[in-house]
């Protein structure tokens, strides 16, 4: 028996979890019959199938390990970029939170600044420069050229 593929176990687990979550939520909707399918019918069936695939992936990994096949590797190795990743995600989320109440300019400045900070070798000053530059570029493209009616600043509404 060789080492179990941690990737396969995790992937199978994720699919199993999603499958169960969808199937269980579907159970709260009307399932109906084949003639008059309710809103829960299709997602319920698909949720069960997805769970089954999740189990299949886990079992295949276990079988492989038992038979002594080497574990298959994922597509990439290397560490997870926790800080940089968090900055990128925070940039997207903050843009979403800020754009409606505060307008495009503040939302873009914050989002591009945070995203730029995540770059390798970008100093806070550099990030600020990138942020201002990109904000201007975006405003020119979307608001000036494309005429999108998006408020630039808080409208006070």
């Amino acid at each position: 028996m060789s080492r179990l593929s941690r990737d396969d176990l995790l992937a199978g687990g994720i699919f199993l979890a999603f499958g169960l979550a969808f199937a269980l939520t579907s159970a709260t909707y009307d399932i109906g019959s084949l003639l008059r399918m309710g809103p829960g019918y299709f997602p319920m069936v698909l949720g069960i199938i997805l769970s089954a695939f999740g189990v299949a992936i886990i079992l295949t990994a276990v079988l492989k390990a038992v038979r002594g096949h080497p574990a298959t590797a994922g597509l990439d190795e290397g560490g997870i970029p926790w800080v940089r990743g968090a900055l990128v995600l925070a940039a997207i989320m903050l843009f979403g939170f800020m754009v409606a109440p505060l307008g495009l300019v503040p939302a873009l400045l914050v989002a591009t600044f945070l995203a730029a900070l995540a770059g390798h070798g970008t100093s806070p000053l550099g990030a600020a420069v990138i942020s201002v530059g990109l904000t201007v570029l975006c405003i020119v493209i979307f608001v000036v050229i494309l005429q999108l009616k998006l408020p630039l600043f808080p409208t006070g509404g």
Binding site: A111, A115, I141
Partner: peptide, 18 residues
């Protein structure tokens, strides 16, 4: 790349929101 990827994020989020 350190300029390109913040640009991608800015364009995508505005495009998606618009």
């Amino acid at each position: 790349y350190r300029i390109l990827f913040p640009a991608i994020i800015a364009f995508s989020t505005i495009g998606c929101y618009s």
